[in-house]
Structure formats: structure tokens, C-alpha cells
């Protein structure tokens, strides 16, 4: 199979699990579920991106499927905004401020952590190989 097509299949295949897992989290925790998916996804995507930069070896379909497919579908920007809208409509403005700004800040912090860990681990494994 050509690699471009393989990447598309891989993205679709892994996206199923990312979307399903996010739906599961929002079913049990509601908006906190979206928050948990988004923030943990930032760590995971940064980890995978920087890990595979160091340690790739032709695993393009796997890297693309896991990052663009699984984590991309696991996290969501649209639900984040919709959750904010729902909270604003319920007129309780303090939690919505916390939700909104902590998503911005923790998204970046966890992405930075993921980058750090992914870089380290990728370099270590690439060094040993």
C-alpha cells in the first residue's frame, strides 16, 4: 500500500479510539472529561511529536496514526468552546473563568512537559539503537 494511503487509514483507525475514549470521559465526568482529555492530550501529542523526531525509523504510519489520529481526535477545541458557552449561559461566571484560563495555561504547560519527556526518551532510545 502506498504510504500516503496508509497514513490516511492509520489516522482513521486510531481516531475511532480517540473519539470513543473522549466520549466515554465526557459521559462519566461531563465537562471535566473534556478538560482531562484536552490537557492529557497536550502532554501525549507533544511527547509523541518529539519522541518520533528522535526515534522514527520508518514508522511514519504509526507516528501519524497515534498523533494526528488518536490524540488529535481525543482532544477537541470545539467542545472546549461549547462547554464555555454552556457555563456562561448558566450565569455562574467564576468557574467558567477558571475553566477557560486553566485550559489555556495547563495546555501549554503539559505540552512543554510532553516535549521534555519525549525528547529525553527518544534520544535515549536512539542512542542505544
Amino acid at each position: 500500500m502506498n504510504s500516503k494511503l496508509a497514513n490516511y487509514f492509520s489516522v482513521g483507525f486510531f481516531a475511532f479510539f480517540g473519539g470513543a475514549l473522549r466520549c466515554f470521559l465526557t459521559n462519566i465526568w461531563s465537562q471535566t472529561g473534556t478538560f482531562v482529555a484536552n490537557i492529557s492530550g497536550c502532554f501525549l501529542l507533544a511527547f509523541l511529536t518529539y519522541f518520533f523526531l528522535q526515534f522514527r525509523e520508518g514508522r511514519d504510519w504509526l507516528a501519524t496514526g497515534l498523533s494526528t489520529g488518536f490524540v488529535g481526535a481525543f482532544t477537541t477545541f470545539s467542545s472546549f468552546n461549547l462547554d464555555t458557552l454552556k457555563q456562561l449561559q448558566s450565569a455562574n461566571s467564576m468557574p467558567v473563568m477558571i475553566y477557560f484560563f486553566s485550559s489555556i495555561i495547563f495546555g501549554l504547560i503539559f505540552a512543554a512537559l510532553g516535549m521534555y519527556v519525549g525528547n529525553k526518551l527518544g534520544k535515549r532510545l536512539a542512542g542505544e539503537a
Binding site: 465526557t26 507533544a46 477545541f77 467542545s79
Partner: peptide, 26 residues
């Protein structure tokens, strides 16, 4: 709604890619 909203649009948009790109700019 689960198919179109949570599924298609939730999977279409991405919070993680945006943050990794933001981090890259920093």
C-alpha cells in the same frame, strides 16, 4: 449529536495540535 457533534466535529477540531504548535512558536 454523538455522531456529528461529539464524533465528527470533536474529532475534526483539536486542542492538542494547537498547543504543540503554540509551544513551537515559543
Amino acid at each position: 449529536y454523538a455522531f456529528v457533534g461529539t464524533g465528527i466535529l470533536g474529532g475534526y477540531t483539536t486542542f492538542s495540535t494547537m498547543n504543540v504548535e503554540l509551544l513551537g512558536k515559543l
